[in-house]
């Protein structure tokens, strides 16, 4: 485990052969407030030890999928009305979110959601709430090894920068020693450089600790670089899936999610940058 992380040195994990799925979501339907149908027959598999990306436009139902898996749907008056979710061979839909955490699924929610009136250390200790073993102290050190910056911040977590808060949110997830981490938009609101750093850490965590990660992202390019497999969602369904390479080279994906595919687009980009340069002069 190395303390400093070289952003470019961490390679993407190799695309593994089909392993048995740790998490499998089979044809689920999710309804909010008994009337609003959000997911209509979604299925996906997450093989053990891999990073799987779940991509799609706003409102496609990516976050809802994660909440359905982690059980947090209940807190928002939503329910899985059809299909089932199984984790490590056991059916988990309908179970309370706190019990799902105990089974080894931890969700890093969108917008980080750290507890701003507590210190970093208290946030980390809360991450380990479900654990009964005595290695919590060592794991706090481990998190500090990944994120040396957090160790220096002794004040309230609410005063951390956005990137630091994201690191704290990931560190808090690690403290629970989960088998599967559900990450909802880790790149949200971060500068491109920080996004790179966060993704490098996600890959490193996956490689070092063998944690399986299901990653929901708007930043499709970064997500497909980190992931080995990807699903693309549209209005509550999976419309396309494949290995990360296949998806990254797919013409439709390029056009809709990666941007800057064809010739015209490139020229438009040049035009824009030209204009900008002129304005600065």
């Amino acid at each position: 485990m190395t303390a400093a992380i070289d952003v470019n040195a961490v390679p993407a994990p190799p695309v593994a052969a089909r392993k048995p799925a740790l998490l499998s979501v089979n044809n689920i339907e999710v309804v909010y407030n008994d009337v609003i149908l959000v997911l209509r027959g979604l299925s996906l598999q997450v093989p053990e030890g891999e990073i799987v990306a779940l991509l799609g436009a706003n409102g496609a139902g990516k976050s809802t999928t994660l909440k359905a898996i982690s059980g947090l749907l209940k807190t928002e008056d939503g329910a899985v009305t059809r299909g089932d979710i199984s984790f490590a061979g056991e059916k988990i839909n309908g179970i309370d979110p706190d019990k799902i955490v105990r089974r080894g699924i931890f969700q890093v929610m969108e917008g980080r959601r750290i507890i701003s009136d507590m210190t970093c250390l208290e946030n980390l200790r809360l991450g380990a709430f479900t654990r009964r073993d005595n290695n919590v102290r060592q794991d706090i050190e481990m998190v500090y090894d990944y994120f040396p910056r957090l160790k220096e911040r002794t004040g309230l977590a609410g005063y951390l920068s956005g990137g630091e808060q994201q690191m704290l949110a990931i560190g808090r997830a690690l403290m629970a020693r989960p088998k599967l981490i559900l990450m909802d938009e880790p790149s949200m609101g971060l500068s491109p450089l920080l996004v790179k750093e966060v993704f490098a850490i996600i890959r490193q965590i996956n490689r070092d600790l063998g944690v399986t990660i299901l990653l929901v992202e708007q930043n499709a390019r970064m997500a497909l670089q980190a992931a080995s497999y990807g699903y693309i969602m549209e209005s509550g369904k999976v419309v396309l899936d494949g290995t990360a390479e296949e998806l990254a080279n797919n013409e439709d994906v390029k056009e809709f999610y990666l941007g800057g595919g064809g010739e015209e687009r490139r020229s438009f980009k040049n035009l824009k940058s030209y204009k900008r340069r002129k304005r600065w002069l």
Binding site: T75, D98, M109, R113, L126, G127, F129, T130, R172, A176
Partner: peptide
């Protein structure tokens, strides 16, 4: 602080 966050932490 936030009941949803608490539940996501296993509380």
């Amino acid at each position: 602080f936030d009941q949803q966050v608490a539940q996501s932490l296993g509380i």
